[in-house]
């Protein structure tokens, strides 16, 4: 009986640390997304001060290619939208995993108290 509980305990703690790792990874990607988001927002603000006559270039590899204001602006807006979606996706994932972790934590505590008894 107690060996049963013990294996259960080990299984839960394994799952727990797995979840912890994946949450840490998610948090890293979340902060990376935030950096990108801020950078794109700054660029977007800059675009608002420009107009059709501004000469815009985009760095592709090591070459500066001339770009249309409309195109560039649309591109940035699309990118911001994409990053916002990514942030939402990662955040819901983090939330889900956190509740799951809480569940496993409770199970762990339960098994531990049984083991102690």
């Amino acid at each position: 009986m107690s060996s049963d509980l013990k294996s259960q305990f080990e299984q839960y703690s394994l799952e727990f640390s797995k979840l912890q790792n994946s949450i840490n990874e998610l948090i890293t990607s979340r902060s990376k997304l935030e950096t990108q988001y801020q950078e794109n927002k700054i660029v977007n603000e800059e675009f608002e001060t420009l107009n059709e006559d501004s000469k815009i270039y985009k760095l592709i590899g090591s070459i500066l290619l001339p770009q249309d204001y409309q195109d560039a602006n649309m591109n940035i807006n699309k990118r911001i939208e994409f990053i916002e979606n990514e942030i939402n996706r990662v955040e819901t994932k983090i939330k889900n995993e956190e509740t799951e972790m809480e569940n496993i934590r409770n199970k762990l505590l339960e098994v531990r108290s049984k083991l102690g008894a």
Partner: peptide, 12 residues
Amino acid sequence: YLVDIGTGYYVE
């Protein structure tokens, strides 16, 4: 001048 405004975009 060509100014780097971020994310690979440069503006005159």
